[in-house]
């Protein structure tokens, strides 16, 4: 983690899709997808290594027509850190406030929509298909090798399980 005021957005290993008012980011390393709302997307794009947090705050204000504090930008950077969307994690500064307090403080005063990153882990294709023909639950040594009925939903099976159709050991977890 660096203590830099000039965060740099990560590009490597990401598939980036610009949408009308959002940016969709797919991380090929972790198979996680992130949806950045308009404000988060703007801040992320402004993280080019040449802008400090203060610079970015000003850019946000100019772009969206309302002054925002540095905390507003730190809030976004905090999320970028968690989602691994920066080249290097940056130590966030909320000046003694918790993140929740910062959101409350900024949210009450902000004219500009708060930066939000919604994330989701994309399951492998086996899970996308979902139905296993028959699921073998648990090793015989642990539970006697109970077998779920054909087509059992994963939620009905104890883990660990192996789906004979897919060989996936985590289908039913």
């Amino acid at each position: 983690m660096i203590n830099s005021q000039n965060p740099v957005a990560r590009r490597e290993g990401l598939v980036i899709q610009e949408m009308p008012e959002e940016v969709l980011v797919y991380d090929t390393n972790t198979n996680k997808a992130h949806c950045l709302n308009q404000t988060a997307a703007f801040i992320w794009k402004a993280c080019d290594g040449s802008n400090s947090v203060k610079d970015i705050s000003k850019l946000v204000g100019d772009e969206f027509g309302g002054a925002v504090s540095d905390d507003f930008v730190w809030l976004a950077i905090d999320q970028f850190n968690k989602d691994n969307l920066l080249q290097e994690k940056v130590e966030t500064k909320f000046e003694g406030f918790s993140r929740r307090e910062v959101i409350r403080k900024i949210g009450l005063a902000a004219v500009v929509a708060l930066p939000v990153v919604a994330s989701l882990a994309v399951p492998n294709t086996v899970l996308a298909v979902g139905t296993c023909v028959r699921v073998q639950c648990c090793a015989p040594s642990t539970t006697g090798g109970a077998t779920c009925p054909a087509g059992s939903p994963p939620s009905t099976c104890p883990s660990p399980c192996v789906c004979p159709a897919t060989g996936n050991p985590t289908l039913c977890t």
Binding site: E21, E22, L24, C35, L120, V122, P123, L127, A128
Partner: peptide, 13 residues
């Protein structure tokens, strides 16, 4: 929104 909609679709894509 389109972005959140796509995000919701992804587990089935």
């Amino acid at each position: 929104t389109p972005g959140l909609g796509v995000l919701e679709m992804l587990p089935n894509v």
